[in-house]
Amino acid sequence: MQNNLKSAKPHYAALDGLRGIAAIAVVIFHCYEILTPDLTKNPIAHGYLAVDFFFCLSGFVVAYAYDKRIKTLGVKQFLINRLIRLQPLVVLGTVLGLLGFLFDPFLTASPVREFGWGKIILATVCSLLLLPSPILGRYENVFPLNAPAWSLSMEYFINLFYAFVLIHLSKKMLLLFLVLATAFIITVAYLHGSIVGGWSASSYGDGYARVLFSFLAGLTVYRFNLILKNRINFLLYGLLLSGVFLFPHFENDWFTEIAFVILLFPLIISGGAGTQVSERLRKICIFLGDISYPLYMVHYWMIWILGNYAATNPGQQKLYIFSIGILISSILLAWISLKYFDEPVRKWLKMKMKSNKS
């Protein structure tokens, strides 16, 4: 969910790899929401914290890519660049979600008969525009056709906030904003016993607490140059991040989640940005980074199908086989989406922008 780093500047391959690990964790977590709905029994119980890691990484990378050039680039061009980077997969995710919704083989009732074309079209338009529209049931998802899009609506919000406010902050003011955002996310976590919110109509406001703190934390790591030079192997960072996602869930364990998000994620980004990656691992990391955003945006239509398949009571073994198929298919679809849709569309849009200027 970040800009590709310019070739003239250092490329943080370890951060690419960590972003890919987080995206895979999200897919596995979503499968386990069907396989083991009880979070206290879910083996990847904190997989949803991958979103907070994405937000923190986004703060670091956006600052890295734009802090020193947004004044000459201009706010308008910055926002256009972000739109080109993010929107093609928003569109693809919506289209896949719509097709999955209409042609799910395990649905017991026709979506058109149940909701009508009016609501379906409205939900589709809102999904394309990243406007919340919890109008198709589906457990109050604010983006019922592509549930993960809620975090993209937060990404767009924080990019606007960055362009109009955060870019102008002094270091002292940035720390003040970070303190306020810390108080905000701690309050949300304490009141709700967790920071899993943002995806549903009743918890959508929690998403602002998550994105504000984590983006500001990543921004702080960059602006204060808190990059920890080290020789720790990338695999250890990957294991540490995976350990967060695999950490058991307990009722009202908000304090643990806050510790992960406030302390550990910025530290992982600081260390990951400061470590070197071997050439073999570098290629793997870049691949993982490349497919991370497509993977995040194109997998969820299959999760709805998995859920409806589970309702037919096929047995746990078949559900696990189905889930493994979803994970493999999601990674393959992410790569295909990247190479044959996302990259060509972004290239065309950039060329179109250049031709309009000339």
Rank of each mutant, 00 (worst) to 15 (best):
G274S: 09
Y12K: 11
F60C: 09
D253T: 05
C56H: 05
L338M: 11
Q87N: 10
A123P: 07
L79A: 02
L264A: 14
L39Q: 11
S270G: 13
G74A: 08
S292K: 03
F101P: 01
I286C: 07
V112S: 07
F250C: 06
L228V: 15
S127C: 03
H249T: 11
I326C: 05
R280S: 10
A63K: 03
N225M: 10
Y156N: 06
M297I: 03
T72F: 10
F245C: 03
F78T: 01
D67K: 12
K354D: 15
N313P: 06
S337Q: 04
G97D: 03
F164R: 05
A217H: 08
F255N: 11
W150E: 08
M173W: 14
W335L: 13
A8S: 15
A65K: 00
T108W: 04
L236V: 15
Q276V: 14
L129P: 07
A8W: 05
T220G: 01
T40A: 15
V125D: 05
V112E: 04
P314Q: 12
L216H: 01
A14H: 02
L73F: 09
W254E: 06
S202P: 06
F103Q: 03
L246H: 01
F55N: 02
G97Y: 00
L295M: 07
F287M: 08
I305Q: 11
W335A: 12
A163Y: 02
N42F: 09
F60S: 12
K350R: 13
S170C: 13
Y222V: 04
Q87H: 15
